[in-house]
């Protein structure tokens, strides 16, 4: 067991976990933030995407101890009090989700995209979402939402 500390959504958190604990399990089970999902065991679906030191990464493919001392933002940390993040609002406006399982990861990837490329083309948006799989929407409204959030 190891005591692992990090900053999650602005608060310092710590938990005693086994070395083999994944970051996603640390967030869901130890910190009780269940907005971050697990959709696969092959690192391909992107349901688990969070931000680590300002980069969108797959928390299912990172050990919690690798995130020691890092700054983590999860989907729960995006809204400003009661005010949704512009990307969240745009997803709502554009019906960019159906079952919602992929949505936290999609939103976290989209926020990172707009951070790195403030004015992406359709093609750049599609390429950026390569690692986020949605089995419901057919992606059209997700693209629309991200364009609205620009």
């Amino acid at each position: 067991m190891k005591l692992v500390k990090m900053n999650v959504n602005g608060s310092d958190v710590a938990a005693e976990v086994e070395e083999n604990t994944l970051l996603v399990d640390f967030l869901r089970d130890n910190i009780k933030l269940t907005g971050t999902h697990v959709g696969c065991d092959t690192s391909q679906c992107g349901a688990c995407v969070i931000h680590m030191d300002g980069q969108a990464v797959k928390s299912c493919s990172i050990l919690a101890i690798q995130a020691e001392e890092k700054r983590i933002t999860t989907i729960e940390g995006l809204a400003n009090g009661g005010e949704l993040h512009p990307v969240q609002k745009a997803f709502q406006n554009n019906h960019a989700l159906q079952c919602g399982f992929c949505t936290p990861g999609m939103v976290m990837s989209a926020v990172d995209l707009l951070d790195k490329k403030p004015n992406p083309s359709d093609e750049e948006i599609r390429e950026w979402l390569e690692g986020n799989i949605c089995r419901c929407t057919g992606y059209q409204n997700i693209i629309k939402a991200i364009k609205e959030a620009v």
Binding site: A56, V57, I62
Partner: peptide, 9 residues
């Protein structure tokens, strides 16, 4: 290589 999240890591 892979996707943006894979390329960050």
């Amino acid at each position: 290589i892979g996707d943006p999240q894979v390329r960050y890591r």
